[in-house]
Amino acid sequence: MQQDPNPRPATGYPYPYPPQQPYASANGYPPNAGTAYPYQNQNPYYAPEPNSRAILLRRLFIAFLVLLLILGLILFILMLVLRPQYPDVYINSLSVSNFNVSNNQLTGKWDLQLQFRNPNSKMSLQYDAVILNLYYGGSSLSDTRLQPFDQGTKDQTPVNGTLSVAGTYIDGRLANSIGQDRAAKGSIEFDLRIYSLVTFRNGVYRRRRYITSYCDDVAVGVPASRGSGDMIGPSKRCRSY
């Protein structure tokens, strides 16, 4: 059989093209050959790994805050359950002896009895300090400190106290006011302030509070002709805050 002198590729098959040669520079080498660098991360937002010590401190701080919240919640629940109430304070008696005002000098001795009542049915009270201060017309005349004592639930405790002054200077206006009261009414109205540092207790629960009790306008019969007298009327309840 005679062969075709100009053979053609069969229909349906691509014509085989020669492989494309890579671009070469004038010296026969690819451009930038030998000048490539390893890959570098240029991300400006890249952050290093956090310090393990900082993580530990942050976790400890969070745990401390959680503990404080739990303790605060427990304390709040205890307050709702126990409902601590301030003690009731009464002045049962107040007498004065050796009372004299002359030449703006005051002398006198006051004996009194107070009654402290614990209204709480679930909490005992501890009086760490009780300070008495006697006033007249807004001016302090004398003060004293009582011995600390404890009270059980619903207990009532009588406490005696004594205040005294001897030749203490007072303002002329105050001396005149005392003399006018004795001449007009035959009595003098004193004010008593009771400053107490009280601890409320129930099991392991402890809460300390400063409480001030006001016993105002306590009338004592001291006519101008005598230097002694007693409280007028029955026992009187003081206001506590």
Results as ranks from 00 to 15, higher is better:
D230P: 03
I74N: 00
N176F: 11
R239C: 04
S177D: 09
Y46K: 15
N51H: 08
A129L: 12
Q115L: 12
L134Q: 07
G227W: 00
Y135Q: 06
L125Q: 01
L60W: 14
D230R: 08
L163I: 10
Y39H: 10
L65G: 12
P84S: 06
A33S: 12
P48A: 12
G227N: 05
A129M: 10
R117H: 12
S97K: 09
S124N: 04
L73P: 02
L134V: 06
Q42P: 06
R209Q: 12
S97Q: 10
T157K: 13
T144Q: 02
N100S: 15
G161K: 02
S235W: 02
G172I: 10
P30G: 07
Y205H: 00
L56D: 09
N118Y: 04
V101A: 02
E189D: 14
E49P: 11
R59S: 08
I211C: 01
N32H: 11
A36E: 15
L73F: 05
A183Y: 13
N202C: 00
E49I: 09
G203L: 02
Y39Q: 08
G221M: 12
S52E: 07
N118L: 05
M231Y: 00
N98K: 09
Y195H: 13
R59I: 07
Y29H: 12
G167I: 11
T162G: 04
D181I: 04
Q2V: 15
E49D: 09
L174Q: 15
G179Q: 14
T153P: 03
D230V: 06
S240C: 05
L197C: 04
D155R: 02
A129F: 06
L56T: 09
N100M: 08
Q180W: 14
T11M: 06
Y214W: 13
I55P: 01
Y29I: 10
Y17H: 15
A184P: 05
G186D: 12
D150V: 07
V218E: 00
Y127S: 09
D143L: 11
S25Q: 14
T162H: 08
S102I: 04
P158V: 09
P223F: 00
G108T: 01
S187A: 13
P18S: 07
A183S: 14
S95W: 01
I77T: 11
W110V: 03
P16A: 10
P22L: 07
R83A: 04
P5S: 10
A183C: 05
Y37H: 13
R117V: 10
N103T: 05
N100K: 14
L134W: 07
M123Q: 03
P148C: 08
Q147P: 07
L60D: 01
L71E: 14
D143M: 10
G138P: 09
Q2H: 14
C215H: 00
Q180F: 15
G203P: 00
L132V: 05
S164N: 10
S225L: 08
R117A: 13
L197P: 00
V130H: 01
Y45N: 15
T199W: 03
R59T: 07
F116A: 04
L82M: 01
G229N: 01
P50H: 03
R117M: 08
S139N: 13
F190C: 00
R226G: 06
Y15V: 09
N176R: 15
Q21C: 10
R237E: 13
K154T: 12
S121N: 11
Y136G: 02
L197M: 10
R8V: 15
R201A: 01
D216L: 14
N6P: 07
F190E: 00
T199Q: 11
Q115H: 06
V165N: 11
T144N: 08
N202V: 00
